[in-house]
Design a protein around this nucleic acid. Structure first.
Lengths: 207, 207
DNA sequence: ATAGATATAGTAAGCACTTACTAACTAAAA
DNA sequence: TTTTAGTTAGTAAGTGCTTACTATATCTAT
């Protein structure tokens, strides 16, 4: 009678850590820090709770690691910035809007993570906003300054203008993905973005 | 020797319920549903936990009562709508923007409550968004339709345009009050609003 | 008016269960 | 054999919610 053991496949530390991070990211994004239990993370990862605490001293350490990771994983934005370097004009705004909207649509979890983090007062969220968020605002403000200098745009505070454009775009994403408006409002991204551009660009233009 | 009893002041049911609602509102707005404990509500109200459950069968019943209350307490918006009835033009948008920004600034707790509710999936938040939120959007879209008919505005989708304006305004409030940008960005409301109006109105205007 | 009956507002203590976190051990790989 | 990845079985401190009780106010019959 051969009692065969179920063959347990062990993971390396690196693999396991990344798996835990993935599972936990999803949960933290959906339920927030308080709303997510270490037990559920473990269950969803198919391991015992103790493993989590072997790799992360505290629940909040895991959370911080995730926020850190997500904040530094901004290859997309960096690529965008590089693409747009030197360019100026309508298409720059179009591409920024398109990037933000499609990115949030593909994966709303980062937006949720950020919102939860801001509401729950985990200071790591403002690090992101005060670096990557400001970077975008400053980039757009720079664009606007350029267009004002070229006498294309009127004399309007570049930072407020940049924020107004970001507001259009980001609030649209927020409403669609988090307030659940995408169930009722299905205009294709392209049309929405074109309309935003039209309003903003003509609004800024001299006449 | 007169041992005087500390005079315990009893409240009527109505008084107590409203006190509990007030205390709990503040806590739910700051910490979300999951982050707030019935124990803390009781402590902050200076009563024992059992009192809460005398008036509200479950924690979530208290939460629902609060959201319900806040959603129906829209005297401000109703007053605004009445004031603006029949009017058309730049000043309508100015007043809507001013209303939203000052309201959120005076008391950001409603915005926080709404955000938490949307993130935590308490369906009551979308009731608000799909009634009061849509009401405002529809109102602005109506304005825009009027201005298009009058050949003041160009032919632009009125709903997307309305959402873009709301986006400017609401994302500004969100960033200031919840992302904590008001620490760094202190331009007076009046200037911000004027800039938004300038951009949006000129952006929509025929030429 | 006042004594007793009844209803209401409140409490202290604790139940059953969950939380984040730990210690002491075992199995697989190097 | 030694290291590493994993488990089992706990802990103390919460969690929402209930029970069994007391203090205060209001009503009613005398």
């Amino acid at each position: 009678m051969d009692k065969k053991q179920v063959l347990k496949k062990r993971m390396t530390k690196k693999e396991r850590v990344s798996q835990i991070v993935n599972v936990a990211s999803m949960l933290f994004a959906n339920k927030g820090f308080k709303g997510t239990t270490t037990r559920e993370i473990a269950r969803k990862a198919g391991i015992s709770e103790a493993v989590i605490f072997k790799y992360f001293s505290k629940k909040v350490a895991l959370y911080s690691a995730i926020i850190d990771l997500k904040c530094n994983d901004t290859a997309g934005q960096s690529r965008l910035m590089k693409t747009l370097e030197g360019k100026i004009g309508r298409d720059v705004f179009r591409q920024v809007a398109s990037f933000l909207i499609t990115e949030h649509q593909k994966d709303p979890s980062f937006m949720r993570l950020l919102m939860y983090s801001a509401l729950e007062g985990h200071n790591l969220s403002d690090i992101f906003i005060k670096t990557k968020g400001m970077e975008l605002i400053e980039f757009l403000a720079g664009q606007i300054r350029g267009l004002i200098k070229n006498k294309v745009f009127r004399e309007i505070d570049p930072v407020i203008a940049a924020r107004s454009f970001m507001g259009m775009v980001l609030h649209y994403s927020l409403a669609q993905e988090i307030y659940g408006l995408k169930k009722y409002f299905k205009t294709p991204n392209k049309n929405v973005i074109e309309t935003f551009i039209k309003i903003f660009f003509e609004g800024m233009t001299r006449r």
